[in-house]
Amino acid sequence: MADNPALPRSGVRQDAVRLSPRSRVLLAVAALLGALAFTWPLLLDPGATLAGDDLAPLLFALVLPVVLAVVVAQLTGDDLDVKALAMLGVMSAVVAAVRPLGAGTAGIETVFFPIIISARVFGPGFGFVLGNTGLLASALITAGVGPWLPHQMLAAGFVGLLTGLLPRLRGRAEIALLAAWAILASVVYGWLMDLSFWPFMVGGESTISFDPADGTLANLHRFVVFNLATSMGWNVGRALTTAALVILLGPALLRILRRAARRASFG
């Protein structure tokens, strides 16, 4: 073979899953619904149908899968290369395999690492789908299917999508960028997850819970206090582990996946 794949480390990213205009529109609407699904305690109107109850996350647990199905069906539909699909399956297996390595029951910190690196190499569309398939597969393996799963899938999908849209840098700058992004993504993910399941976990009748009558700012204020007191350490720990993984193992994994992407030349 004349071309030696070990040598050039060209920076061309391969988009393994293409984003058609229709996919973009669907993703934009899904982002809107996602924003609603994660921040609903701040938007809830005291007179609204779901105000008297803390079951709003369960509404989203039913609604999000429908929307995710439409978006993922669109992304993986007509022009998905079989090589990209096989890579998606194998990378989802990696996500599922590293998940139990994360500490504790909330051990999601490790899964962002393969998602971020793969999305960096294979592009935003692949990142979004991998976030979904990866978390679904890991939930099926570790029996983690629950009302929280659609939220996790959506969030991980957007982490992948946004990773794919980060500016193109190379070398140390790229790793620094990805590590910073990993910290940001993990912390924001933690906050949003806590926010959306806040009323669900602590119940409506305690003073650290939200009260739709108080208005957005007061609720946000209370949430921040609650979150700092309870799960901030957790979130920061998760963010730092992800960033550490990106810094320590990222270069090796990037190299492997870029080599694969060059050889596969997704059609």
Binding site: G89, A93, A96, I141
Partner: peptide, 23 residues
């Protein structure tokens, strides 16, 4: 799953069989 999600289900089925082998 509905045929429109065929690819998704293929990817997850692959993941389910490959993950134990990865470990």
């Amino acid at each position: 799953v509905p045929a429109a999600l065929h690819e998704l289900s293929v990817a997850v089925v692959i993941a389910l069989s490959v993950a134990p082998q990865l470990v």
